[in-house]
Simulated assay, not measured.
Amino acid sequence: MSETSPSYKRILLKLSGEALMGGDAYGINRQTIWAIVAEIKGVVDLGVQVGVVIGGGNIFRGVAPAARGMDRAQADYMGMLATVMNGLALHDAMRAAGMVSRVQSALNIEQVVEPYIRAKAIRYLEQGRTVIFSGGTGNPFFTTDTAAALRGAEIGAEIVLKATKVDGIYSADPNKDPQATRYDRISFDDAIAQNLAVMDATAFALCRDQKLPINVFSIFKQGALKRVAMGEKEGTLVYC
């Protein structure tokens, strides 16, 4: 790779639903989603193939009080539907930005979005289209972190990028411990030994087993996604 070429050909970006809220209590903040789409477009314009797994916490947060005491599987299906709504919102913002994207869902809602089909998703990526994966894994009891690890492995992504509100992985919660230090790089084994909550255990184990590195960075830091794609130091890299 030259200095001006991206370090990755295909990436899987994990976006939490909360990232779409901006400063709002729940829902989708339009200015925030446009800013996120601009960051993604900057990477796509470099020629990087981008798959996106989207969470649903921003929508489900609004109905969470009513879900207390609800059957866990039922509540998880509600959360999966929230990710489909977020996927459609992200798709519309990408369309407005001049991008070509497709939304696929692990839940069959064919009147609204395409079903997830691995071969079709890979073909879209090869055509330069951004693929938004919604509906989680399609199964209750699994998080969208696990969906990100699963889709990343399935589509042959070279890295999973976890976009968060913080700029990497710290030795402790930086909001609670002023002495917490940020790691530039850390191995999977060291992250496990230090009990660092990078992703949920299932997702983390899947990435480790598939030798799929993870980079944790702040989506709200302008240009951070592009710097990660270019192989520059940004956030924290978890390596095998």
Rank of each mutant, 00 (worst) to 15 (best):
R68N: 15
L12K: 07
I169R: 00
M199Y: 05
V113Q: 06
N215P: 04
G128W: 13
T130F: 08
A193I: 13
G62T: 13
I132D: 00
S171Y: 10
T32G: 14
M78D: 09
G17N: 08
D24N: 15
M80I: 13
A121Q: 06
I214N: 00
A66P: 13
G79Y: 03
V198T: 05
F204H: 08
A89S: 13
V43Q: 05
I186N: 06
A180R: 01
L225Y: 13
I59E: 05
V198R: 04
Y239S: 05
I33L: 09
N195F: 03
A35F: 09
G47E: 00
K41C: 07
F204Q: 10
A172R: 11
A148V: 14
G138F: 14
D209W: 06
F141Q: 06
G23D: 11
R102C: 10
P115A: 14
P140Q: 02
P140V: 06
F217R: 04
L81Y: 13
T4L: 05
L90V: 09
Q111Y: 05
K9G: 10
I117R: 03
Q111C: 06
V84T: 10
D177M: 04
L150C: 05
Q49H: 07
M78N: 04
V53A: 08
L15T: 07
S218K: 06
A82N: 02
N86R: 06
S218L: 07
